[in-house]
């Protein structure tokens, strides 16, 4: 008489989080602290860059260290020649999605709502990395600072335009801030698809074995959206992402 599937799943989930915490401690001790010790000697811009890179590499590290070999995470760059900084927009199905930005090939800063900044440990990292709290920052300030990030600092601004996890696998309506930014400064809009996280990490944060696939799609370029309103750009990108998701999920089911 074996243990029930429910018990095995809860045990798997528990062991995943044990590994997650262990990986976090290891990362902080051997990578985080040495980097932090150098910070007092650096400018605020350099410190911010270090925090951002620490966050990004932490995401990549903790995904691999916690999930291998039971959770497969595969990243596909469908436009490897497109490397310039821009706006990156991702679909949002799971609370674990933010960690997936760790796989993005380049420096990035995230825009988020209020709640990630309230998380213990992660909230502090987000603040120190200069992440944008869209609930608190004045929109004009966001546009000015984010424009500088992309154009001067070559840092991509990333976010989930749905604003919250979608209730099902269909994408919700998009908020327009990131598209207004792209339209204002004429930068590429990169769709970033995150598929499978809703199964691997469910809404109650119970973790199951499975497969996560990440896709960097070809950007919607400023030449393509020249003359469009931000609303038109938003709708176009949403439809583009939805069509690609449907195509990829159909291919994986066949």
């Amino acid at each position: 008489m074996g243990s029930s599937p429910g018990f095995r799943l809860r045990l798997f989930s528990f062991l995943f989080y044990v590994r997650f915490v262990f990986a976090t401690v290891i990362y902080c001790l051997f990578i985080g602290i040495p980097k932090i010790m150098a910070m007092p000697f650096l400018s605020s811009a350099a410190r911010r860059k270090i925090w951002r890179n620490l966050i990004r590499f932490y995401g990549k590290f903790v995904i691999r260290a916690s999930s291998y070999p039971f959770i497969k995470v595969e990243y596909y760059d469908l436009a490897p020649h497109e490397k310039s900084a821009g706006v990156v927009v991702a679909n949002h199905r799971s609370g674990s999605d933010a960690f997936m930005f760790g796989m993005w090939p380049g420096d990035l800063v995230q825009i988020a709502g209020e709640w990630p900044f309230k998380l213990p440990f992660f909230g502090l990292l987000a603040q120190w990395g200069g992440y944008y709290n869209i609930s608190k920052i004045a929109f004009d300030d966001f546009m000015r600072l984010a424009s500088d990030d992309i154009l001067k600092n070559k840092v991509s601004v990333v976010g989930f335009p749905e604003g919250t996890r979608s209730a099902n696998r269909e994408m919700g309506q998009f908020h327009g801030a990131l598209f207004r930014l792209a339209a204002k400064i004429n930068c590429p809009v990169y769709p970033f698809l995150i598929l499978g996280t809703e199964i691997v990490v469910n809404r109650q944060f119970v973790v199951s074995p499975g497969s996560i696939r990440l896709y960097k799609l070809s950007a919607v370029s400023p030449e393509q959206f020249a003359g469009w309103t931000p609303f038109q750009l938003k709708v176009y990108v949403k439809n583009y992402m939805a069509a690609k998701i449907a195509e990829l999920e159909k291919a994986s089911n066949e």
């Binding site: 929109f139 309506q173 998009f174 908020h175 327009g176 309103t229 609303f231 938003k234 709708v235």
Partner: peptide, 24 residues
Amino acid sequence: NFELDEAKIQDDKLLFDDLGLDSL
């Protein structure tokens, strides 16, 4: 302003959830 399909613009349609208009 938004190139919406006129047929979809009805009294009960929520500005954000149905028509996609955010605060901006």
